[in-house]
Design a protein around this nucleic acid. Structure first.
Length: 120
RNA sequence: AAAGUUGGCCGUGCAAUCGCUGCUUUAUCGUUGUGUUUGACCAUUUCGGUGGUUAAGCAGACGGGUGAAGGGGAGGAAAGUCCGGGCUUCGAUGGGUAGGGUGCCAGAUAACGUCUGGGCGGCGUGAGCCGACGACAAGUGCAGCAGAGAGGAGACCGCCUAUCGCGUUUACGUGAUAGGUAAGGGUGAAAGGGUGCGGUAAGAGCGCACCGCACAGCUGGUAACAGUUUGUGGCAGGUAAACUCCACCCGAAGCAAGACCAAAUAGGGUUCCAUAUGGCGUGACCCGCGUUGGAACCGGGUAGGUUGCUCGAGCCUUAUAGCAAUGUAAGGCCUAGACGAAUGAUUGCAGCUCGCAAGAGAUACAGAACCCGGCUUAUAGGCCAACUUUCCAC
């Protein structure tokens, strides 16, 4: 039975968590909307954190929307992912994209990550 | 019916599946917290006990973990952070100065730069809308170009008089000089009230009448202000979002305020000794106030956690006072409290616009962060009420 729960343990909560990812020379998965920084963690499950600056998405409504959509897709796929920490960094233009396109892009990225970690 | 004005309201709804986050009820797990019982050891003792440490058992009231069910979960602007207040702390809210704000009058309010009613001025056929709208006759300052002159002013042209020339015998015309003159021309955004009559050499508030203005009185009004068949004055421009004056108001900083529990680390309080017309500190400045070097003893509060944190100048209904803003009374209701920050995603149906239909299209501005009252700005589409103008019908 797959679990689709998304509790607090699946998030990066403190600045130290973020610094760990940045300092570990992370693997990058990029597309035109965002960049994902990835490194292995010592947990049982993957974790996700966000960095969306006001410059990239001007309105709070847009920033919230991106986070919610991305989190939703992460939740549905988390059981398929290895134990890694990810930091989502928004790029210019992400605020102009609708939910459907963002979801398609994210699904591509999950598949790439899975392939990469199966190989290694 | 069309065009418009003002005020108020809504700003997607329902269902299913999967998630997030508080609350309530409930199940279960742990015994590291908590409570309690017993034993052992240590300290103390008035030999009854008391305090501490530790081990074992029990409990499930409190707290914690994991489930289940029920129920709640963004806005009219949550925004800009432009005002005002509550709350909190601070040389433990002292005196003076500086500085800032407001600015027709009255009322409302916790308070306001807000709101309501009224006055005055301007705009609109009108319903209505707009206005930092106190004082330049307290003082100081400022004003490009043009113009003779820009503030108790001013002779460039013109007008008038006198003297001396010239044309001609005088009248008259004309030139120069010395005066008078604010009627007329010209300049300017603005030239020191306007019209008429008298007056004069020509003119002039120089005098008079009427109109306008200022001051005083009287009448109405709480007042701003309005009216005036009253009296006085010949009448002294603009600018105070220029200094200034007048009236009233203002301590500062903010929930990263602050309080409590508490790893670390320096500072801090009490006593004793030493002791200076000095030094240092001060959330605008001055007065003022505090503090200082050494020793001994006693306690400290950053990371993290808890709290502040949502029952409040609260919302709804009715009655009542008031033109109104709003107040009062009664009854009912509980309606987000997160902290790398929840309030979401997908699908179906309904609703909106266009179309006979199949179908197509639109769905704005925008996301709580201690809480309220306002203001300002953004906003697809829609609803209600009152009123105005024009046209048509009767």
């Amino acid at each position: 039975m797959k679990s689709y729960a998304y509790g607090r343990e699946l998030r990066l909560l403190t600045p130290e968590h973020f610094q760990q990812v940045f300092n570990s020379s992370p693997r990058k998965f990029a597309c035109r909307l965002y960049t994902l920084l990835i490194c292995k963690n010592n947990q049982e499950h993957p974790r996700l954190g966000f960095t969306i600056s006001k410059k990239k998405a001007k309105l709070a409504v847009d920033r919230n929307r991106i986070k919610r959509v991305t989190r939703e897709q992460f939740r549905l796929n988390a059981s398929e992912l290895p134990a890694i920490d990810m930091v989502f960094i928004a790029r210019q233009g992400i605020a102009d994209i609708d939910n459907e396109q963002l979801i398609r892009e994210l699904n591509n990225t999950w598949q790439k990550i899975q392939k990469f970690y199966k190989k290694s």
